[in-house]
Design a binder for these strands. Structure first.
Lengths: 189, 189
DNA sequence: GTCTATAGCTTGATAGAC
DNA sequence: GTCTATCAAGCTATAGAC
């Protein structure tokens, strides 16, 4: 029996790809899993991404980077009280990772890292995240060096909490870390 | 041409297996890579681990768990000043992860986690690590609840720093986190 | 206890119809 | 732009010689 042609939107397509790459990492994200998650056949995925799995992975990273910038980092650059901006960012981050139950794509995609192109994408996106955190910390009155360290600490704690959640199924630490972010980045609640 | 029989010690064998699983995760650790890293042929690996890749992964986790308990967690349970014990633990941890340049096996092995047996191993070993940290924090005078939170924070920061190092090639945060561990876990330096 | 050789399946990727 | 059908290569795992 012939299957109905699945004409899906870019958003649906990327939702499927993101889920697979985030859950299984680059190596674990097989074409079969990507086909199942998107509803498109192999050849259709290759039509959209002629560079194959590597191009899919990079496109997925870029897509998540854009969504992250719009939904999570944008509030950090708005005017107003830095502590309130960070609180908003923390709330959005909690939602983005579903209370910590989802892994970070940048984490899982960096495992095994023998594809230079992917490592470069991951590194660049982490840098954008870091810069946004450092900037809001400086807006709160911290000098560059102090703000840099606080931004590092924030990223470390977010990533660490997500790892602990994946490995031990602990959701509480992630929530606590998120709630403490305004204090960490701005010195105030 | 016939290859010389490679009779290697259990330690050499596990060194090879650990390196591959830690670097590439469970999915990325292919038999070819394991063969190359250990110097044994496929069939010889299956002779030692009849359960195949899954059994190898579990054995590797147990082996690392033992080494970790002996070299890193043991100093925590010795008599003496808790802050000094933690400092010793931190020093050993730095060496274990080569200044942060190596990933944590528990992290990379938990990516993709569709093998229940492996997830159970990872979770159990994290628990042992956590318990040792909580205990030394209680030895330093903190009540159970406070010590639990400090142990959580310590694990989160260690894991987070290792992720940041892998993804962004930043070694400095890991060293700083390690140096701050005595303060975090005991309240003193 | 290690090896060579191979089975059977899945992988990433491509050709060509519609 | 999606599909079916197929490829060569790589995968996990096994059989059997020494």
């Amino acid at each position: 029996m012939m299957m109905a042609h699945a004409k899906i939107s870019d958003e649906e397509l990327f939702d499927g790809l993101i889920t697979v790459f985030r859950t299984f990492g680059y190596e674990g994200a097989t074409m079969s899993k990507l086909v199942e998650a998107t509803g498109l056949e192999r050849a259709s995925l290759y039509h959209r991404f002629p560079g194959g799995k590597t191009e899919m992975a990079c496109a997925v990273l870029e897509c998540v980077g854009e969504r992250f910038a719009e939904n999570i980092l944008a509030p950090l650059a708005k005017p107003g009280d830095p502590a309130k901006r960070v609180a908003k960012m923390a709330k959005r981050t909690k939602e983005f990772y579903v209370g910590g139950r989802l892994s970070c794509l940048l984490d899982t995609m960096s495992v095994g890292g023998d594809k230079e192109q992917i490592q470069e994408c991951v590194s660049r996106m982490f840098k954008a995240w870091f810069d946004a955190l450092q900037k809001v910390s400086m807006d709160a009155g911290f000098k560059a060096q102090e703000a840099k360290q606080r931004a590092e600490d924030a990223l470390i704690q977010i990533q660490g909490a997500l790892v602990m959640n994946r490995a031990m199924n602990l959701t509480r630490p992630f929530g606590r870390i998120m709630d403490d972010l305004p204090q960490l980045l701005t010195g105030k609640d």
